[in-house]
Amino acid sequence: MLEIKKAEKQFGERTVFSGVSFSAEAGETACIVGPSGCGKTTLLRAVAGLVPLSDGTVLLDGEDITSWKAEQRPVVLLFQEALLFPQLTVLENIAYGLKYGRRKLGRRARLAESRAMLQKIEMEQWENAYPVELSGGQKQRVALARALVLKPKLLLLDEPFSSLDASLRQSLRTWVRSFLREEEVTSLFVTHDKEEAVMMSDRLIVMKDGAVQQQGTPETVYHQPENRAAADVIGDGLYDERFIPASSLTIGAADGYSGIIEHPQFMHGYRFYRVNVPSLKQTVVVLSDTLYEEGEAVKLSVTEEKENGAL
């Protein structure tokens, strides 16, 4: 289990983040979601031991690893790029950490474990291929295998799907999520994509402006953001002293919030409108089957509260 307590990082005068505390149970995937520049990548690197924390502690299975060097921590970090070693084959890449890294094994054991891992990621036929021959998704799968063959207590993922195209990203997310569950790996995942965050996580941590805004199950955080910052990052709706989910907003009533139709959006077989609400300086995407023009002024009314987005 991972516990971060009052973590703080400063670069010179600038505070990247402070007072960051959260935890992830063993086997859980915790996900930090936040806009770029909120300090989430730096936090991840600090947990990996690549940059030192200015203050606070990192506990892994009850052990304080705050002052451990990166190579001593039973933690592997996956980067945005797969960073496979180009001069080595797929199998050799997977075996890399078993020869040079934390979990050293003899040649025969290396070969056996790497082959078993190759099978798990369903890439046996690529054993002798070089990284240049692989697609982006395959590279990330190999990178994941290279990390997991070391049996880390914690896996860190820094937006590992961001360099992939949309459809590949979708399929790889699903695959990685079930793979991590099967292997029962405790993992900490960082992303700026709220859809990805809600989908990948067992526990969701919303970060903005260098601080944790809210944490909980993805279901709770998505439907009930506690403050404006959390609502900005994760919620679909408006925030006006309390969170009003998009599902309880209706376009076209006589009164309510004044809004301007920005453009229509089509998702999951329905028509939505992106509506700008100048008085709140927010935009919201609302379901509607009426036709509106771009730039048309409308009213957004709040209907009775619906539980967790049920229609």
Partner: peptide
């Protein structure tokens, strides 16, 4: 630098 960091996080010291 990411390459070196990748090495470190796989468990290799600076010399290795």
């Amino acid at each position: 630098t990411d390459w070196m960091w990748q090495g470190r996080t796989l468990g290799m010291g600076p010399v290795r």
